[in-house]
Design a protein around this nucleic acid. Structure first.
Length: 460
RNA sequence: GCCCCGUUCGUCUAGAGGCCUAGGACGCCAGAUUCUCAUUCUGGUAGCACGGGUUCAAAUCCCGUACGGGGUACCA
């Protein structure tokens, strides 16, 4: 079936219901975000319903602030949900009832800490409940991304469905909740694939239908290991704080394990939703490539209107975050400078170093830049001396300044590209920055320019 | 160990037996444009894990091997 065929299949699917079911044991992880995104995409592609369910059955590991955090990050990414958030912890009685039913039907049994079966048919404090694994059966299902998969029950153990502390285990709660909530498609990470046969058996035992499963390839690090909180940069919050845009983040994430049919990679997520089909998802793990994320982020940054850009960038130039004294900030000059540097950034975090010289009492001291332009560069002293003379009385506008500096350079036999370097470093502290002649004409007073050139000259 | 899954340029992917001399994107390299950087443009680099089949024809189907990953908790 071609990609078009799959999109038709999407439309034919009747009212799919999907869910993202994170456990709030940490901040939102890029792998989880990708799972949430693919659920969202599938729901939006099919006109289905996307449910958010918080799997907080492990009371010892859960903390409420982590849940709030999780929801905030999902909102930031723009992955709005249609129902929920539902909290699994609030369904304890239902889970307990199901476990008791299984016990009554002898499909499960009580078990002590030594994993020995103990007689009895009532859920008992201090005793766990295990599901009785049927012998000699093959559990088979067709995964939407991986195709037919089967397991033999001999390879499966009697697994715990109810803890001795009176709480349900993941497999049980997950299966019951999916059934009760009418989940038709369970879209999640491949690490959950081997749990499917147990869930299917459980579903059969309680007489519930099987959802369709789709197991997404894992996101891996450079060592090809599953992304882990400990080793890798996986927190969505960190990417936000590093100056990545949510639309760039979801666009990039959509490209891991899936490719657009027309090779157009950079596009709004709503457009991706129209092209998305679960059957097109790859089976092989994908490496999270920061370089490509940066590239995509830079594209989104450039595409922002100036107003949008300034709004998004505000946190990076706020009084608390900025490297300059707040009272030096000049909104008008900043606004002009944004127009000159927006296209140069890869992340919003790059912004301060492109504009800081405007608001700092003195430009930053960047040894590499100084060395490159003032020490290694040609005739830095002569350039600064010459510039000081011509800039003292040339007309204070971009072209005039540019011509004046170029003339000094020509007199010394240096092209403008090299000639401007010492001046740029004298004014901004760095070899890389905004177009320097515009910056002078529009944002720097003649006297400041002359002072900074003199200051730099005296250091030579 | 056992079970399950996977393998197309360095990376993300297109590919559904002939359209493949394997396409695109990121990266990298070179060049053009440019007041730095960035942008933009042009060109280049580089891949079907291996071995057997099936077929007139295989990246694509089958089997095996190798390698990689996931699972195997009173975590989720």
């Amino acid at each position: 079936m071609g990609s078009i065929g799959r999109q038709v299949a999407n439309l034919l699917a009747v009212n799919p219901r999907v869910r993202f079911a994170p456990s709030p044991t940490g901040y939102l992880h890029v792998g989880s975000a990708r799972t949430a995104l693919f659920n969202w995409l599938y729901a939006r592609a099919t006109g289905g319903t996307y449910v958010l369910r918080v799997e907080d059955t492990d009371a010892e590991r859960n903390r409420p602030e982590l849940t709030e955090n999780l929801l905030a990050e999902l909102e930031w990414l723009g992955l709005d949900w249609d129902e929920g958030p539902l909290y699994q912890s609030e369904r304890r009685d239902r889970h307990r009832g199901v476990v008791q039913d299984l016990l009554n039907g002898n499909l499960a049994y009580l078990c002590n800490a030594d994993n020995e079966e103990v007689p009895g048919q009532e859920i008992t404090d201090g005793l766990a409940v295990r599901f009785r694994m049927p012998a000699n059966q093959t559990v088979a299902f067709t995964d939407l991304v991986r195709g037919p998969v089967s397991f033999a029950t001999e390879d499966l153990e009697d697994f715990v469905i109810w803890r001795s502390n009176g709480t349900p285990m993941f497999l049980l709660a997950n299966a019951v909740d999916d059934a009760d909530m009418g989940i038709t498609h369970a879209i999640r990470g491949e690490d959950l694939l081997s749990g499917v046969p147990k869930v299917l058996l459980l579903l059969d035992a309680i007489g519930a239908p099987h959802p369709v499963y789709a197991h997404l390839p894992l996101l891996v690090n450079a060592q090809r290991k599953k992304l882990s909180k400990r080793r890798d940069d996986v927190s969505i919050a960190d990417y936000r704080e590093k100056g990545y845009l949510p639309e760039a983040m979801v666009n990039y994430l959509a490209l891991l394990g899936w490719g657009p049919p027309d090779d157009v990679e950079e596009r709004p997520i709503a457009e991706i939703a129209k092209l998305f089909a679960l059957e097109d998802v790859n089976k092989a793990p994908a490496f999270f490539d920061l370089k490509k994320l940066e590239f995509i982020n830079a594209g989104y940054l450039r595409a922002l209107s100036k107003e949008d850009f300034m709004e998004r960038a505000a946190p990076w130039v706020s009084a608390e975050a900025a490297p300059w004294p707040a009272e030096n900030f000049d909104a008008e000059k900043y606004s002009i400078m944004v127009g000159l540097v927006q296209e140069k950034l890869r992340t919003l975090a790059d912004l301060p170093r492109f504009v800081d010289f405007l608001f700092l009492d003195e430009p930053v001291d960047d040894p590499d830049s100084w060395h490159k332009a003032m020490v290694k560069g040609p005739q830095a002293a002569e350039m600064l001396d010459g510039a000081a003379v011509v800039l003292a009385d040339c007309s204070w506008e971009t072209e005039a300044i540019k011509e004046a500096v170029a003339a000094v350079g020509e007199g010394l036999g240096i092209k403008l590209g090299k000639a401007q370097a010492p001046i740029r470093v004298a004014l901004t502290g760095r070899t890389v920055g905004p177009p320097i002649f515009e910056t002078m004409a529009l944002c720097l007073d003649r006297q400041v320019v002359l002072d900074r050139i003199a200051q730099a000259r005296s250091r030579l």
